[in-house]
């Protein structure tokens, strides 16, 4: 078969998702919808009943680490979640560093800025491993909260890994991670202090300060990227 020719105009791409891209077609759609569909009713009580049946079964997503002390189990769950989050955080920054290196340019953050944060995330991860092991826990176990955090982070990792996303779009995703991370470190620190784990708490305070710095930096880069004077 002979090679086909390509029309130049066919190469033009534009966003096609809204109704205003083809208002005539959309009008046809809406007119048909109004003629053939039921009267709108936002009540979803039947759907809620189905969901209630499953929620009422009360089966958990998984169990907390086994220990005689419920407070310690709750702490290990939280520690496991932070460990998983920091571990993924290292990979998240690795991906952004690779993208930054390819998309060379003068805009912030620089590769060095990102490497600095990435290295601190790795230090936090190692600190958490030590802390969990020191408390008699298993740093390789996936705790329920770690699992839930993993589900939450799926979208963040996907955004950064996609070769089509920009640094600016990736920073929005990373901001989500840093905001959550900041608050969770704060909660963790308080739990450690309440349980009298002062030595670990001291290290955690340092980690929280570093995380706060990460958040400030990411916020600043987003402001800068959005053309907002600081």
């Amino acid at each position: 078969m002979k090679k086909s020719k390509t029309n130049k105009s066919e190469t033009e791409m534009a966003n096609r998702t809204g109704v205003l891209v083809a208002p005539d077609l959309a009008q046809e759609l809406v007119e048909g919808v109004n003629g053939f569909s039921p009267e709108p009713q936002l009540d979803q009580s039947k759907a809620a009943e189905v969901r209630a049946t499953y929620i009422s079964e009360g089966l958990p997503i998984g169990s907390e680490p086994v220990t005689d002390d419920p407070d310690m189990a709750a702490l290990l769950d939280k520690l496991g979640a932070r460990l998983a989050f920091e571990r993924s955080g290292v990979r998240l920054y690795d991906a952004l560093i690779q993208k930054r290196a390819v998309l060379a340019g003068k805009a912030n953050p620089t590769t060095a800025d990102l490497e600095h944060i990435r290295d601190e995330e790795l230090e936090h991860m190692h600190m958490l491993e030590e802390c969990i092991a020191g408390l008699g826990g298993d740093p390789t176990a996936v705790t329920p909260l770690a699992d839930v955090n993993g589900v939450m982070a799926m979208g963040i990792l996907k955004v950064v890994a996609d070769p089509r996303t920009t640094i600016s779009q990736c920073l929005e995703a990373i901001l989500t991670a840093e905001l959550v991370d900041n608050d969770c470190w704060g909660v963790l620190l308080k739990m450690m202090q309440q349980q009298g784990l002062d030595d670990d708490a001291e290290q955690f305070e340092e980690a929280l300060a570093e995380e706060q710095e990460h958040l400030q930096k990411v916020r600043g880069w987003i402001m800068e990227d959005s053309g907002i004077a600081q």
Partner: peptide, 12 residues
């Protein structure tokens, strides 16, 4: 039936 009870498509 349950998921679409009283559902009418609307742009947006």
């Amino acid at each position: 039936d349950i998921v679409a009870a009283g559902y009418r498509y609307k742009p947006g």
